[in-house]
Design a protein around this nucleic acid. Structure first.
Lengths: 333, 333
DNA sequence: ACTGTGTATGTAACGGGTTACACAATAATA
DNA sequence: TATTATTGTGTAACCCGTTACATACACAGT
């Protein structure tokens, strides 16, 4: 049975007051070198570890940060979370990962619950929280992947430009009937990607509203709606899916209809998750620098918390085309 | 700016002592009905939320539980984590999800760090922690997916039987040269699955050590070693992969060598992750009841924590064959 | 010798709850 | 009517750190 020592016991062991032990612990104030050594050896001897909760109570800080994501089962978020965790861990923070299911009340619940635990700050991927809710909480917060408000620090990528590039790329490959499977209307990055798509197709006189459908950022839903679409409009020769999960859904739908990808139909996704490499054909995508986005958001939040000067309150990353088999016949399969 | 009320302010508002407020809050001890109402309305009025940290300090409990998994990027674990979170949330606990990378020191670090925060208990997926380390910590703990020691509560599935069934299934389909891509030696479920495979093949006089290789539970590694294997032994007509990630790797390798699945080669995995449905052909697998395992482990841990009588300290689930296209030609593709 | 500054350490209040214990008032029992 | 439960409420100690403030000494400058 392990007995947990307190600061008092250490103080007694070392023959000093608790204040001195605390000073040694925090490298704060004056401590004689000999005393310091004595205290250190008592700490060692008793295997003393300061009580994080007592410390939190006084400091109103917990060395914990909260990360709220819509759904950990979408592989995009574990990749992001992993990046955040790597940074927070290395700085001595504990990460608390929460699933919101994109639900406003769940997000609020987490915000409330964690604030009561004196969580030092939040990184949130949200489409439902608005500026007022965040400001209400009055706690360091960084938006990730989706911006909340121009005034609130955020890290995301250039969805609009990326979508334009994706669409242009399909055009360059010779596609002339290009469809877009868009994400939910309430998610701003889906809206941006949709806008990028329409701006390019309209510019080319190829825009047709019938070729835009909503896949809800999910594989299952996308399989259904895309099958319908492809049956109704068999002339479609290229599809830009609003994210990689939906691109997989498109691929499934095409497969079920006996369409050859990329020969009959070219598919491009968005996000750059590892899953794109597991399908056959592998999926071409506009890759976001997921890991970098995660670490950037984490660093930004920690800078906020530690009140270092934060230069950039907004960080926008460029996406990059990753060509794979779903668009190019020549690519070895 | 939101001002956070303390119990003292509520007490003053209601004209009672803090003890009474506390009693109201915890439904403990005698409180006059009128007083209770008065206190309740003061709480309401000041929007008072008891400070979780102060409470933790006294109670030595935090309403938090830790879940340690090897790597959140393997979709098996998010599915498991989601199940655990659903249960813990519904019981008012906050879940802290940690990645250990299967590294002993990282696991220990998390255990230490979270214990200092008075975490109420742990659920761990580990191959490196042994009974003595766990007992050292003297805190409620449930092992998940991999057992640690017969005496330590655990939830996992019947890996041995599942592996036998998978192998037998390939035999029934007519495979005679069956290979096994096994997981790491230090992970006991990988060992069990390996044993199930060898017991069946030996029984049939089909066992050949050259047909067993280690894929390290990873897609990348599996693609490499399986390519080698298939080149060396082109007579292989069936492969039992130790988990679904490796089954995907096998599929990739087969594809690159121009083998047709399932015509030339049948593939079966283990775990039952959703990813198996995204590949083409979709992958047959021995599915574990992932969600149920997660919820069971969570309930078991909470029972421990709340000192309810725990009837089963060990819970073993049966796995189930899910037939898909990677083994059956007839299945629509 | 006197004051000021830097060094070293201790005392006690504080953070925000919980609860053991004391005390009172009322209700029930002998 | 005296005695004992039961109910209701407050005081203060406690959980375990941190830190403002007080005290004390050494040494430098005047």
């Amino acid at each position: 049975m392990i007995v947990i020592a307190t600061i008092k016991e250490v103080a007694k062991e070392a023959g000093v007051s608790v204040a001195t032990v605390s000073r040694v612990l925090n490298n704060k104030g004056y401590v004689n070198e000999d005393t310091r050594k004595r205290v250190m050896s008592s700490i060692e001897k008793l295997n003393y570890k300061p009580n994080a909760v007592a410390r939190s109570l006084f400091k109103k800080k917990s060395k914990m940060i909260g990360l709220i994501v819509p759904d950990i089962k979408n592989p995009f978020f574990p990749e992001l979370a992993r990046a955040v965790e790597d940074v927070t861990n290395s700085e001595g923070y504990t990460l608390i990962l929460c699933n919101s299911d994109d639900d406003f009340h769940k997000e609020q619940k987490y915000l409330d619950a964690l604030k009561q635990k004196y969580v030092d700050g939040f990184i949130v991927v949200t489409s439902t929280l608005k500026a007022e809710h965040v400001e209400d909480h009055n706690i360091p917060l960084v938006a990730l992947d989706r911006s909340i408000h121009p005034e609130i620090p955020a890290v995301y990528s250039n969805n609009y430009t990326g979508a334009k590039q994706a669409t242009q790329y399909l055009l360059e490959l010779g596609c002339r009937q290009i469809a877009h499977i868009r994400g939910p209307h309430h998610i701003n990055n889906a809206e941006e990607r949709y806008k990028g798509f329409t701006d390019v197709t309209k510019d080319q006189g190829l825009y047709d509203p019938k070729l835009v459908i909503n896949g809800g950022y999910s594989i299952e839903k996308t399989i259904g709606v895309t099958s319908e679409l492809l049956k109704k409009s068999p002339e479609i020769d290229g599809i830009f899916a609003g994210n990689d999960m939906m691109a997989i859904g498109v691929l499934k739908a095409a497969e079920r209809l006996g369409l050859k990808v990329p020969e009959d139909l070219k598919i491009i996704g968005f996000d750059g998750i590892a899953l794109c490499k597991t399908t056959s054909p592998e999926i071409t995508t506009m890759a976001q620098p997921i890991y970098e986005m995660g670490t950037t958001a984490a660093r930004m939040l920690l800078d906020f918390i530690e009140k270092k000067e934060v230069i950039n309150t907004k960080q926008v990353f460029q996406v990059q085309l990753v060509e794979r088999q779903s668009t190019r016949v020549s690519l070895k399969r």
